[in-house]
């Protein structure tokens, strides 16, 4: 069974990049939804109950850190991975302290993203990054 993923980023461009990486990971991931701001992310999370959320930090309306907190209230076991840009160390630290499991840093590389995800999702198959 592929891991069901919700992709959250205000830039469609970034969402496409993540989606591209995940759908090309040998069927291990399935994108079940997308959201472009924190509020939408919370709503989509409730609706879809994904196994993994990739969460942008800086977004309009509600940022990724608040959205992470809210989602963890809904489901304390939610697996949220922050998508950060360089130079956002403080925000990532805050996100992790808020309960996010890990982070990936833009610009994304397929190998890197899959490595991080594989390590926090035991079911995703270890070390078998797509070529």
């Amino acid at each position: 069974m592929p891991i069901r993923v919700l992709v959250v980023d205000d830039a469609m461009f970034m969402r496409s990049m993540i989606k591209d990486i995940l759908v090309n990971a040998g069927g291990r991931y399935e994108i079940v939804g997308e959201a472009s701001n924190g509020r939408e992310a919370i709503a989509r999370f409730r609706e879809l109950n994904p196994q993994l959320v990739t969460m942008d930090i800086v977004m309009p309306q509600l940022d990724g850190i608040e959205a992470t907190r809210e989602i963890l209230k809904v489901d304390p076991a939610a697996v949220i991975v922050m998508c950060s840009a360089m130079g956002q160390e403080a925000l990532v630290v805050e996100s992790i302290s808020a309960g996010a499991k890990d982070f990936i840093v833009k610009p994304f590389t397929s190998e890197r993203v899959l490595q991080v995800l594989a390590k926090i999702l035991p079911g995703a198959g270890r070390g078998s990054a797509a070529p």
């Binding site: 205000d10 830039a11 461009f13 970034m14 990049m17 800086v58 977004m59 309009p60 840009a85 360089m86 833009k106 610009p107 994304f108």
Partner: peptide, 14 residues
């Protein structure tokens, strides 16, 4: 700020 931030991330990605 957000606009600059998004551009930064996107440009880095590309």
């Amino acid at each position: 700020f957000r606009h600059a931030h998004s551009i930064k991330g996107m440009a880095a990605a590309m």
